[in-house]
Write a protein that binds this DNA or RNA. Structure first.
Lengths: 213, 213
DNA sequence: TGTAATGTTTACCAACCGGTCAAATTATCA
DNA sequence: TGATAATTTGACCGGTTGGTAAACATTACA
């Protein structure tokens, strides 16, 4: 008899690691495109190149798969914000934060859409993580921004809404990609749109905060 | 035998109008919360307070319901942009555009989420409308903004990305509401958050574009 | 090599879902 | 009022879905 997932905390075969990776990759592809309910286990299994029961041997339910994926994505998704440095200089910190977020939107659009899908539908599975770790991290960085403003290094502004606006503007290029492409048209919608966006957003945020180099 | 939807182009009973409204209201509620595939006809029927066959008497398929809803929402969703006036003064035009979009995010979050769900999942049903009417409207307004920049009324910037950033920042408060509330915490997350957001966004965009009153 | 643990597959199931049908009920109006 | 058209409903259907059972295959290792 096989030991399903829960019992395998001790040792993990190479096979297990490889297969789980393979499954999560496929799950990311499908979930990000169709949302939780829109995705089917058969579809994920097909993309992963294995049979449905085989997939369910590694993740006992569709929900387990989704949970595993979401927590992983949420974690890496916050990395750029973690790097936000209180000791650094406001201009370069804000600029590189925008750059990093935009690069993630460009290089990991599926992760962004997975997350967006989850939030959009009320975040049933991660509300605790939003109110806990996410809020703490944002609180901490908001304090840094507030200190910068107090010291006159940047314009006075609400740090929370500043962070929201950086999130939304950058993730827009992943989550609303279809719309962006449609509006820009074939000629302008090449990969150069990320460079254009970066230039625009830097100008907006840096001069919007009255910081110049 | 009843005449289903397609045959009723001539006259519409009061009952028909009322019921269709009732159904679309329920459909908006359910679709915006669970996406197209996540929503079930039974669920919509229950929210609408009628039986499933009765609902399907007015809209013959789930897709017909969704289509009807989407086109209506897309249309009203663009109203604020239509009001954007080339003859107006850049400061007040941009400010009132932001205000209006933010008010829509506050007052019609379900409409925003319905739209976001659709785009997020590749806009299978409205790609043509994005590439057609939407693109045309944006092109037109982008030209207005470009002219303002050329005349030195606002800073030179990419008008398309300016519009994208206004869309994303304002809609964020509807689409990512759960996250916004979670991060702001109970004390700050009251209805005042929209006023705070409005203040922040006005500052960001107006001084980001080097326009001052 | 033998055998026990691990991994994979075929066949299957119960619940659900979108949609139909025919019968019953209600509104319309000559 | 009576007949005709519009509306509503319970019962049902075929297809899909998430998940299971058990037989079969492969790997790890003593």
């Amino acid at each position: 008899m096989a030991l399903p997932r829960a019992a395998r905390t001790q040792r993990r075969t190479r096979i297990q690691e490889a297969k789980e990776e393979q499954i999560l990759e496929a799950a990311l592809e499908v979930f990000s495109l169709h949302g939780f309910r829109g995705a089917t286990v058969d579809q994920i299994a097909e993309v992963a190149g294995m049979s449905k029961p085989n997939l369910l041997y590694y993740f006992r339910t569709k929900e387990a798969m989704h949970r595993s994926l979401i927590t992983r994505v949420l974690d890496t998704w916050l990395d750029p914000l973690r790097e936000f440095d209180a000791e650094g200089n406001p201009v370069s910190e804000i600029r590189s934060y925008i750059r990093r977020k935009l690069e993630m939107a460009r290089d990991f659009p599926r992760e962004s859409r997975l997350f967006a899908n989850e939030i959009l539908q009320g975040a049933p599975n991660i509300e605790d993580e939003l109110k806990g770790p996410l809020k703490s991290l944002v609180d901490e960085k908001a304090e840094v921004i507030r200190a910068w403003a107090k010291a006159g290094k940047i314009a006075k502004c609400d740090p929370y809404h500043l962070i929201f606006s950086i999130w939304s503007t950058t993730q827009h290029y992943a989550d609303f990609d279809v719309q962006v492409r449609a509006v820009l048209g074939q000629d302008q919608a090449g990969e150069g749109r990320f460079e254009d966006a970066a230039r625009f957003l830097e100008q907006l945020f840096l001069s919007g905060l009255h910081v110049s180099e």
